[in-house]
Amino acid sequence: MPRPPSPSIPEKEFLFTALKQNLRLDGRLPLEMREPMLTFGPELGWVECAMGKTRVLAQVDGKMVKPTPERPLEGIITIHSEISPMASSDYEPGRPSDEEVTMIRMLDKVLRRSDAVDKESLCVLAGQRVWHLRLTIHCLADAGNLLDCACLAGIVALRHFRRPEVEVVGDEVTIHHPSERAPMPLSMHHSPYCFTFAYFPDSSTQAVLDPTHLEQRLSAGLLSIALNAQRELCVVQKAGGVPLAPEEIMRIIDVAVGKAKELDRLIEERLKADMAGRHVEVR
Rank of each mutant, 00 (worst) to 15 (best):
19 L>Y: 04
29 L>W: 05
26 D>R: 08
39 T>I: 04
41 G>P: 06
46 W>G: 07
55 R>M: 13
30 P>K: 05
34 R>F: 09
48 E>K: 04
46 W>D: 14
43 E>R: 06
63 K>Y: 15
42 P>V: 11
24 R>L: 03
59 Q>K: 09
30 P>V: 14
59 Q>Y: 02
31 L>E: 11
40 F>N: 08
49 C>T: 15
60 V>F: 04
51 M>C: 13
25 L>S: 11
53 K>T: 07
45 G>M: 07
18 A>G: 15
27 G>P: 06
67 P>R: 09
53 K>I: 00
56 V>H: 00
63 K>N: 12
57 L>Y: 09
55 R>F: 06
62 G>K: 02
32 E>V: 01
50 A>V: 00
44 L>V: 13
59 Q>S: 08
26 D>C: 11
66 K>M: 12
22 N>W: 07
60 V>P: 03
26 D>Q: 08
18 A>V: 10
54 T>Q: 09
46 W>H: 12
45 G>N: 07
55 R>I: 14
35 E>N: 12
60 V>Q: 02
19 L>A: 08
31 L>W: 09
61 D>R: 10
62 G>R: 00
47 V>S: 03
40 F>R: 02
52 G>T: 01
31 L>Q: 09
32 E>W: 03
30 P>E: 14
51 M>N: 03
65 V>I: 10
62 G>W: 01
64 M>N: 03
65 V>S: 02
26 D>Y: 13
55 R>H: 02
18 A>M: 12
41 G>M: 02
22 N>H: 11
60 V>E: 06
47 V>H: 07
35 E>L: 13
35 E>F: 12
27 G>R: 01
51 M>Q: 14
40 F>V: 09
29 L>V: 07
21 Q>C: 03
28 R>D: 07
22 N>C: 10
37 M>H: 14
42 P>R: 11
28 R>E: 12
36 P>H: 08
22 N>I: 07
36 P>R: 09
51 M>V: 04
51 M>G: 02
42 P>C: 07
50 A>W: 00
19 L>C: 03
28 R>H: 12
62 G>P: 00
29 L>Y: 05
35 E>Q: 14
28 R>V: 10
61 D>G: 13
35 E>W: 05
61 D>F: 11
48 E>M: 01
44 L>I: 07
43 E>Q: 11
36 P>V: 06
41 G>V: 06
45 G>W: 10
47 V>Q: 07
54 T>A: 08
24 R>S: 12
28 R>L: 07
48 E>H: 00
31 L>C: 03
33 M>A: 12
66 K>Q: 15
55 R>P: 09
45 G>P: 01
62 G>C: 06
39 T>S: 12
